[in-house]
């Protein structure tokens, strides 16, 4: 029987005999996708709007009709000027449109959630200026491509980068250290099995699981979050697979370093997750970071993945545009693989 095959078989049995963990691994991406895609969104689904008007001119009436008929606006009716503050404060509405006597229009917003109110402001303005004049405002043209300011376009690629590195690293980070804890490591070290085989055999079953997760995520993103893949699907799959392999090796590397499963999980969940979120460009654009942090992003795999996947998924670019990111990710994966094997061998002494 082939050494490698029997080792892969053993790793598969470990996974299959632990259905609870497997279920978590398969469901976590779905939950995270939904959380990031829906709950943590800055897009406009529904703005509660009230209005203040002293005179009902044709213009005012036209604007009010536009607000009332807009699917993303719930028109809460007319209020008096003195009630604006109270209405916002009570949360009955999040924005008030004021029609001034001079024909000028003002939007007053509850800015306690700054990003949401900013989007709401832009959106309301686009409604109010939509058919005001034939001369198209720059805002209007921009809005046409993403009239809802869909946050999925921004979040989905970033979330994918996070989900993969988190789940893949968490899956593999316990796999070597578990054998140290149970005592089976000692027997493995005395046996003639080569470290390369051990590391690869531990990766393969998780790669299969992760590819399944990848399919789930892409289907969710396409059908539920309505975020189609603009670029070539095969380019996207190659990029994601490379990134998944890298994340699995990262977990394995942590596992060869750690002395207990608890430590390995903490390293992966706490030490890696937070900087990864901050520095990947998922939440804050890399360009806006202070110089020191900007330098740091160069060693964060999620940053390169984030750059590349935006190009493929949103901008629809091909191989030529992402070869740099691909080769950096490849180099990182290779380095982690070699480091894990080296670290594994070091335990012999």
């Amino acid at each position: 029987m082939n050494v490698f095959a029997s080792f892969v078989r053993k790793e598969c049995i470990h996974i299959l005999r632990d259905p609870r963990t497997m279920l978590i691994v398969l469901l976590m991406p779905v939950v995270l996708m939904m959380l990031f895609g829906f709950a943590i969104s800055t897009e406009i689904k529904n703005i509660n709007v009230a209005a203040v008007a002293s005179r009902y001119t044709t213009d005012v009436r036209r604007d009010l009709t536009a607000l009332e008929h807009n699917p993303y606006v719930t028109f809460k009716g007319m209020i008096r000027e003195g009630e604006v503050d109270a209405a916002l404060r009570s949360g009955r509405c999040s924005a008030v449109v004021l029609f001034g006597r001079d024909g000028k229009r003002h939007i007053v917003l509850d800015a306690s959630n700054s990003s949401l109110s900013a989007s709401a402001a832009i959106y309301l303005r686009s409604i109010l200026t939509a058919d005001a004049s034939a001369s198209a405002l720059p805002v209007t043209t921009y809005m046409r491509h993403n009239p809802q300011l869909k946050s999925a376009y921004n979040f989905v690629p970033g979330v994918m980068g996070l989900i993969f590195i988190l789940i893949c690293a968490l899956m593999t980070c316990v796999s070597v250290v578990r054998e140290k804890e149970s005592g089976t490591m000692e027997v493995l070290l005395v046996s003639p099995v080569r470290p390369v085989y051990v590391v690869l055999a531990k990766m393969i079953p998780y790669l299969v699981l992760s590819l399944f997760n990848l399919a789930t995520i892409l289907l969710l993103s396409h059908y539920v979050l309505e975020m189609p893949v603009a670029g070539n699907l095969s380019v996207l799959l190659i990029l994601c697979t490379l990134y998944i392999v890298l994340s699995l090796f990262l977990g394995l590397f942590v596992s060869t370093l750690a002395q207990s499963q608890m430590v390995a999980l903490l390293i992966c969940a706490m030490v890696m997750l937070v900087p990864m979120m901050m520095l990947s460009g998922m939440m804050f654009p890399v360009e806006n970071l202070p110089p020191v942090l900007k330098q740091l992003t160069f060693i964060v795999p999620a940053r390169w993945f984030n750059d590349a996947i935006r190009k493929v998924m949103v901008e629809g670019l091909g191989f030529a545009a992402i070869w740099k990111e691909l080769s950096i990710l490849f180099a990182m994966a290779l380095a982690l693989f070699v480091a894990s094997i080296k670290k594994f061998k070091d335990r012999l002494e």
């Binding site: 029987m1 080792f7 005592g183 089976t184």
Partner: peptide, 19 residues
């Protein structure tokens, strides 16, 4: 103790046989 607890008796033997 150095066998895999979540593998059966035969699977443990097969694994080491394979190794």
């Amino acid at each position: 103790f150095s066998l895999y607890e979540d593998l059966t008796v035969a699977e443990n033997m097969e694994l080491y046989g394979g190794i």
